[in-house]
Design a protein around this nucleic acid. Structure first.
Lengths: 125, 125
DNA sequence: CTATTTACTTGCATTACACAAGTAAATTTA
DNA sequence: TAAATTTACTTGTGTAATGCAAGTAAATAG
């Protein structure tokens, strides 16, 4: 007997806000996206090095999810076969505006947070 | 012996994105904020009537959290003492831009979601 | 004065997450 | 070329968050 698996993404409702949160609204996904979008991180090791300290099983699960939902694509490194690059798709890159306003709100409303605009500029170099 | 309780909000890091998500980045908070911001909901019963179906204990916990963090203020109804209004503070209203981009992203990237701009216009009337 | 409404709380099952350790394959080092 | 290290994970176990159903207390409506 052959068994097939279907990846099923179920939204809570037809609301675009709730549906987006079903995709990225957990404790870690947007932190991973921050690193991909603003720090140009691509590897498992890089994502794990974030100061927030995501645990390895959760990171693996989130990356799998983001690949399944077309935010990342998995690519092997050209030189080193051990290294896998999680690179953003166009859909993934379109999340930049979302993560950015979240950061700007934090800057203006949560004391002692790092200046996000300065950090982005620094990361470009 | 007298016991004091201190409400302690601990950020994962000094990152404004991660810190904002510590505050509103769970499964339900932004859904509640959507209803407060775009549907002008204020009462427990209204929030519970959302199509996503938040359970009552979670709703109570989230509302308490949002009050503790200065997003809502609790006010008794003038006429009916049973009714409590959770009204947005200035800080709470400033989250409008955040929830809005989340919704716009959903509109553009998740199929079969309701048009958020149309919904907002409809709610104004 | 009984029924209903409103804003919750309580108890228990399930799911998600945290923490520590382990694994396999590729690569670097001695 | 054998041993150590790197990289991307997985596995196991405990704890915390969430989901679901039911219950409660005070105020109001009929």
């Amino acid at each position: 007997m052959q068994v097939f698996y279907i990846y099923l993404f179920m939204n809570r409702s037809s609301c675009p806000i709730a549906s987006t949160l079903d995709l990225i609204g957990d404790r870690w996904t947007m932190v991973i996206l921050r690193d991909a979008l603003f720090k140009n991180f691509t590897t498992y090791g890089q994502f794990q090095s974030a100061p927030e300290g995501i645990s390895s099983n959760i990171l693996a699960a989130r990356l799998k999810n983001l690949v399944n939902n077309g935010i990342f694509v998995k690519k092997g490194d050209e030189k080193n076969k051990l290294i896998i690059h999680y690179t953003l798709t166009n859909k993934g890159r379109s999340l930049r505006s979302v993560i950015l306003v979240v950061g700007l709100w934090g800057n203006q409303n949560i004391p002692n947070t790092d200046d996000i605009v300065a950090k982005i500029e620094a990361a470009k170099k």
